[in-house]
Amino acid sequence: MSDTTGESSVQARSVGDAAIIYASDYLNKLSGERIERECKRQLESGHRTLIINFRDTEIVNSIGVSILVGVIDAAEKSTARLIFSDVNNHTAELFQMLGLTRHVSLVSSEDEALSLISEAQP
């Protein structure tokens, strides 16, 4: 795993054509924008699936939600698949309530996300 941005604590790694991006403990403006930049960078570099791992994330505020909606848009425009993994219950309920789960697959672990991808492949 490596810090691919070189400017922050956003960590990401590639598994095949999927990129796994690790969100920080509090998804607010600063950390959110870093994740958004990283997601867009991964899409531009040709990854067809983005997995955002929320294992360290305790809180997502409104700005964080808005930024994730932006990531959803970017993924849809690139016809890429977006998966959120390791989302805590509270945040999962928030995503459900706000409709993010209509556009994103929510899985309990990174492994589950990766097997979801391999299942989908012909």
Binding site: K29, S62, I63, G64, V65, S66, I67, V69, G99
Partner: peptide, 14 residues
């Protein structure tokens, strides 16, 4: 930032 907050309050897409 304020606009982000407004959009994020209801997860408005644009």
């Amino acid at each position: 930032t304020s606009f982000h907050l407004l959009l994020g309050s209801l997860a408005i897409r644009r």
